[in-house]
Write a protein that binds this DNA or RNA. Structure first.
Lengths: 198, 198
DNA sequence: GAAGAAACTTGGACTCAGTGCAAGGTTGAC
DNA sequence: GTCAACCTTGCACTGAGTCCAAGTTTCTTC
């Protein structure tokens, strides 16, 4: 999340515009609910035209879920930082925890918004998918062809862990509690499910 | 999937209309692609008004993914049929395989369509969610409060298994191959991931 | 089997998301 | 300072989804 200084004026303006729009969107959605606010409302509140808004965000839902432009860079660093000989399951855990920490401040709002709009709830997947794609690439690059399906299974299972912890967490409980849930579920999935007696 | 005979005329007509619309939709989408066909096209092809179409399907995507009205009944039977003392992980495997078998004929078309339209790919989750909700209810009813989070983890992991197998499968390969992938991934997740050396 | 209630269908008008384009304004490079 | 690349804007257009009032079909009851 460093270095927005050595950017040209043009780039800095873009970043600023992006953040202005996002901020306006989150504020309005939070006040009135997702459905009750139109894209034009958001554009107006951010002092940009409708067209410009759609230059930055590909859909109304993207206003809520798109990652900050500098965040995707941070993702890659999270992955690059894992030692090559670390077991994949451990790497996934640490990467995902890092990922969540980047969104820590947004998470509560997002979860609350999702509760109020079915449309949003649905397209939340999508945002997770983008990170997942990034993650899958990273995994694929470090896994030989023959173990590719297994590697995918691990990635998807890690996501299952996340989803489970997320569902069990309430936005009022604070972020630490959420991380504890994540670690716990990771441990359980690590041990496997076959041994359960019911 | 039995008993559409002891239905009244009204009910039988409804079922028939539903299936006519669905069939028309799948045919058109398959011929021209999802995006290239409008809802009006489908309505026209099914000899039904736009309004009626939306009475039966809540969205364009639903035309592809909604389960046949009689299918949801079959789901419940799948769940009811599992012995109460069977380990949950095993039950999940068998239920999901049964579920997939119900959709066996649609699956190849759906996967092909999904490949051609981003919108569709996204909302595929949604359809799976509906089954998942049903499944979660069943699991919750058979699991004491204290183990609820773990049960959710198992359900979500089972879904991860499915998603993995689905991704690794190609629609040309035939359904049996798909089932083999599912069983294999179930076994792997059953054994856990912690032991992996990388 | 006639009459009325309930459920289903229809067309049309409306809102809003998202696309495409052409014109005007801003930024950066030489 | 000039030119090219890039951003922003307004406007017109398509298509999804909602709402409603009026017409038609099925079910019920006597």
């Amino acid at each position: 999340m460093s270095g927005e200084d050595e950017l040209g004026l043009r780039e800095r303006k873009k970043l600023q515009t992006w953040r202005t729009i996002r901020a306006a969107a989150l504020r309005l959605f939070n006040e009135r609910g997702f459905e009750a606010v139109s894209v034009d409302d958001v554009a107006a509140a951010a002092n940009v035209s409708r067209s410009t808004l759609f230059n930055y965000f590909s859909s109304k839902e993207a206003l809520v879920f798109d990652p900050d432009p500098q965040e995707t860079q941070a993702w890659r660093e999270l992955m690059r930082d894992r030692p090559a000989d670390e077991p994949l399951w451990t790497s996934l855990q640490e990467i995902l925890i890092g990922y969540l920490s980047l969104m820590a401040d947004r998470m509560a709002i997002q979860k609350r918004l999702k509760a109020t709009s079915p449309t949003l709830a649905q397209s939340a997947h999508d945002s997770a998918d983008r990170f997942n794609a990034e993650l899958s690439d990273w995994v694929a690059a470090r896994t030989p062809e023959a173990r590719r399906v297994r590697a995918t299974l691990l990635v998807n299972s890690a996501r299952a862990v996340l989803v489970t912890a997320y569902a069990a967490w309430s936005p009022d409980e604070g972020f630490d509690r959420f991380l504890r849930l994540v670690r716990d579920c990771f441990a359980q999935a690590g041990r496997g499910f076959a041994a359960d007696q019911s």
